Computed example of a mutant assay.
Amino acid sequence: MSSVHFRTGLGFDSHEFEKGKPLYIGGVCIDFPLGLKGHSDGDVLLHAITDAILGALGEPDIGELFSDRDERWKGAPSELFLREALERVREKGYELINLDCVLIADKPKIAPYKGKIKGKLSELTGLPLERISIKGKRREGFCEVEGIACMCTVLLGKPDEG
């Protein structure tokens, strides 16, 4: 029986709401009157997943790789960041095993969008739906600024050599 080397990663991101921008969560455009403030498209879920993957690999974080001081990333779709992280997973011989994510927001409600978000994440990562968990939780007064925060864990695996 061969053994597998595992690595876990934890990602976090948060952005406050901003008028005049579309709201993206997990690569899905959500019907909501406010978007998220950020240099790129502000997709907290894709940012948290990207950072979790990069952390599991021991790579620089999303802010180092895609600086908000670099005009190339202004308004960029966060899918670009996730694709780069996934390419690094492949280059190091790992594969993504699962995603477990918590979105923290009073609004919009996450439940009506879960299926669509999971489908988009499956498309982006190649993971089957049953290996992707998306949960929505309310702030319960933990911060004054309205926006969305996200925490994510990932599991990476690689068969041990020899």
Score class of each variant (00 low, 15 high):
2 S>A: 04
6 F>I: 14
7 R>D: 09
13 D>Q: 09
13 D>A: 13
14 S>T: 03
14 S>R: 14
15 H>A: 15
17 F>D: 13
17 F>S: 15
19 K>C: 06
20 G>C: 11
22 P>T: 03
24 Y>W: 10
25 I>R: 02
25 I>L: 12
26 G>P: 01
27 G>R: 07
29 C>V: 07
32 F>L: 11
34 L>H: 04
35 G>V: 09
36 L>E: 13
38 G>M: 06
39 H>T: 04
39 H>V: 04
40 S>R: 10
43 D>E: 07
44 V>L: 10
45 L>C: 11
47 H>W: 03
48 A>N: 02
48 A>Y: 00
55 G>V: 07
56 A>P: 03
57 L>Q: 01
60 P>S: 07
60 P>E: 14
61 D>K: 11
62 I>T: 06
66 F>Y: 07
67 S>Q: 01
74 K>L: 11
74 K>P: 14
75 G>D: 06
78 S>K: 04
81 F>E: 03
82 L>Q: 05
84 E>L: 10
86 L>A: 14
89 V>I: 08
92 K>G: 06
93 G>E: 02
96 L>K: 00
98 N>K: 15
98 N>E: 12
102 V>L: 04
102 V>F: 00
103 L>A: 00
105 A>C: 10
107 K>Y: 15
108 P>S: 00
108 P>N: 00
108 P>F: 00
109 K>W: 09
112 P>V: 05
112 P>T: 05
114 K>R: 08
115 G>E: 14
115 G>H: 08
117 I>T: 01
118 K>A: 06
120 K>N: 04
121 L>F: 00
121 L>W: 00
125 T>W: 15
129 L>V: 08
130 E>L: 10
130 E>A: 10
130 E>W: 01
132 I>Y: 09
134 I>V: 15
135 K>Q: 13
135 K>P: 08
135 K>V: 09
137 K>C: 06
137 K>W: 04
138 R>Q: 05
141 G>T: 01
142 F>W: 04
149 A>Q: 02
151 M>L: 10
152 C>M: 03
154 V>M: 00
159 P>F: 04
160 D>E: 14
161 E>L: 15
